[in-house]
């Protein structure tokens, strides 16, 4: 897969993934504040998306 896109991307397309990750992070941070147990578990998953995306990108990079 090429790094480059075929067409020039719109601003919305450029920020599609960053916004999704940002919303998940923020929801996780707030959810963790509002309670324990299931809310904490959900907070870990949501806040954990950003580090997971980083690990995935680094792993993909080193594998080729």
């Amino acid at each position: 897969m090429s790094h480059r896109t075929r067409h020039r991307q719109s601003t919305a397309a450029v920020f599609r993934w960053p916004i999704a990750i940002g919303v998940a992070s923020f929801a996780g941070l707030v959810l963790g504040l509002t309670g324990d147990g299931a809310r904490d578990l959900l907070a870990w998953i949501l806040v954990g998306i950003a580090p997971t995306v980083i690990f995935a990108a680094l792993a993909r990079r080193t594998s080729r």
Partner: peptide, 14 residues
């Protein structure tokens, strides 16, 4: 980030 990534896929690490 926006102008820089216009032609690059999200997650690109060259």
């Amino acid at each position: 980030y926006a102008p820089f990534m216009r032609r690059l896929r999200f997650g690109t690490l060259r």
